[in-house]
């Protein structure tokens, strides 16, 4: 599904060069649910941006669903994002002016479906996240958990093979976080590949597979003790 080999990404400012990713290797199989954890500045977000084709990389190869994405035009990348990838963000990123229906509609518009097909998909996705009865509400009229559900519905509307989630529960309380997590697992069970970036080891444990990023590289899985320390910290933070 997703293969990254020897990926390197460097940010340059006038004074410093930061290696966000260096010799990054990762393989994600179809149907997998991968949680990516790591400390701040480890390159998690860069990885996610590159995986989601939001950013380009300097060296290495990246195959998405069998297609080498290196050197693709903006238009081709946009199309790939639209068709194969769904995004879920920590801060939901719903468009405040649009109601739920229209928010979920956004990726479908760019896909070019006809209006009947769009309507069918939007209704089905909102049904799936349990918000079918609030289609005409504006995002501001919903709770955070509901907003994230809308965002998930939006991500699913295009029936992507591959879902990228960036701290999907970061802005939610634990109860809502739990229900969102259940929803993601449910989606994964239906066959959608999910890669989730999080700093929360408890959340990560619910995924099928965990990887740990440090200094722009995939490290060995952290020892259980490390995980335990993370857990302890997370508990303390609450």
């Amino acid at each position: 599904m997703l293969t990254m080999q020897e990926l390197t990404k460097t940010y340059r400012t006038e004074l410093v060069q930061t290696h966000a990713l260096s010799n990054f290797n990762l393989q994600v199989e179809e149907g997998d649910f991968v949680a990516v954890t790591g400390p701040s500045g480890s390159g998690k977000t860069t990885f996610l941006n590159i995986a989601g084709l939001l950013e380009t990389f300097d060296q290495g190869t990246y195959n998405l669903d069998g297609e080498n994405v290196r050197g693709l035009s903006d238009k081709a990348r946009s199309r790939l994002r639209n068709e194969k990838i769904g995004f879920i963000f920590q801060s939901f990123n719903l468009i405040p002016d649009l109601d739920l229906f229209d928010n979920v509609d956004v990726p479908l518009r760019y896909r070019g479906f006809n209006s009947a097909e769009r309507k069918r998909r939007i209704e089905r996705c909102l049904e799936l996240v349990g918000l079918a009865n609030r289609m005409k509400h504006l995002p501001s009229q919903l709770s955070g958990g509901q907003q994230q559900r809308v965002a998930i519905a939006r991500a699913l509307a295009g029936e992507p093979r591959f879902l990228l989630a960036d701290e999907p529960t970061g802005n939610l309380d634990s109860k809502m976080a739990h229900s969102v997590m259940e929803l993601l697992k449910d989606i994964n069970d239906r066959g959608t590949t999910i890669v989730m970036v999080t700093h929360d080891p408890l959340l990560a444990q619910q995924a099928k597979r965990n990887i740990y990023v440090k200094d722009g590289k995939v490290s060995e899985l952290p020892s259980l003790t490390t995980a335990a320390i993370f857990t302890a910290q997370a508990v303390n933070a609450d």
Partner: peptide, 16 residues
């Protein structure tokens, strides 16, 4: 800009 960024992420091309 955040809306534009989002639309880009979701698959809108620059042209669109």
């Amino acid at each position: 800009s955040s809306e534009i960024g989002l639309r880009r992420a979701i698959g809108a091309s620059r042209t669109a």
